[in-house]
């Protein structure tokens, strides 16, 4: 291979700065993890609500849930982020818009995790709906028969079961949140992909070194997410309960 290797690059100081490239990477990892986790919280909360709404008897509520899912999953994340970042602030009253654009603290970070959270929420909603619909119909009827209201039936009967059986697909979505967080660089968050790109540039083209470390870190993040969910799955497992597909 005709390539000029330089693994020491990580310990070099960045041009006209005090940090090393290694410090950059650690910084980047911090932002990647923060965006992913913050987005995951949003996705889990909104996804659960919207997914549940899609299964309730009320047509209006079902429609809201359905529209939410179709809206947020049918446009690529990259475009959604662009719209949140560049288009939405222009629709606000001028003063608010200027505040969002210039004075809001951590504005790129907030825009990025909100966009990622909403995008992921549509996918989580689909899993929640599938989980609820996979439950035998008798469970809902049993809940109502013992005098629970619809809300109580969801709270005490349906959701506790549904969430347990959708842990495996939710694991995938959790991992996806990490993997998709990379688009945040397009609005200028210094996360791993941003660092990787900037490193290629400022080191004069040390591509392999600049790619390999972020890649390994992503694999580790995905693995950690996977293991965390596996622990939850083991704890939450319902003995003897296998859902017929």
């Amino acid at each position: 291979m005709n390539y000029h290797w330089n693994w020491n690059v990580f310990f070099q100081t960045i041009p006209s700065g005090d940090e090393t490239y290694l410090a950059w990477i650690i910084h980047g990892l911090g932002w990647t993890v923060s965006i992913s986790l913050a987005a995951w919280v949003i996705a889990l909360v909104l996804g659960s609500v919207m997914g549940t709404l899609r299964t309730v008897p009320n047509t209006g509520l079902r429609l809201i849930g359905h529209a939410w899912v179709e809206f947020f999953r049918n446009v690529p994340l990259l475009m959604q982020l662009f719209i949140w970042f560049f288009v939405v602030p222009e629709m606000l009253p001028r003063d608010w818009g200027m505040w969002v654009k210039q004075d809001m603290p951590a504005k790129e970070f907030i825009t990025a995790f909100v966009a990622l959270g909403l995008f992921t929420s549509a996918r989580v909603a689909e899993q929640v709906r599938a989980g609820i619909q996979a439950l035998p119909r008798g469970q809902r009827n049993a809940g109502l028969a013992i005098g629970f209201t619809q809300a109580q039936t969801y709270r005490y009967v349906i959701l506790p079961m549904a969430f347990r059986i959708i842990i495996p697909p939710l694991t995938s979505e959790f991992m996806n949140a990490f993997k998709n967080s990379g688009v945040a660089y397009t609005v200028g968050v210094w996360e791993l992909i941003f660092v990787s790109r900037q490193m290629v540039e400022e080191t004069g083209g040390q591509v392999i070194e600049s790619l390999i470390v972020p890649t390994v870190l992503y694999i580790l993040c995905a693995y950690a997410a996977n293991q965390l969910m596996a622990v939850i799955d083991r704890r939450a497992h319902v003995p003897g309960f296998i859902v017929a597909k």
């Binding site: 995938s172 991992m175 990490f178 993997k179 998709n180 990379g182 688009v183 992909i193 591509v207 392999i208 790619l211 972020p214 890649t215 992503y218 694999i219 995905a222 693995y223 996977n226």
Partner: peptide, 16 residues
């Protein structure tokens, strides 16, 4: 492995 790496990274890797 494929499921752990962001596609964006994968695209860059293969290309180089």
């Amino acid at each position: 492995i494929m499921r752990s790496i962001p596609l964006l990274m994968m695209i860059l890797w293969f290309f180089f």
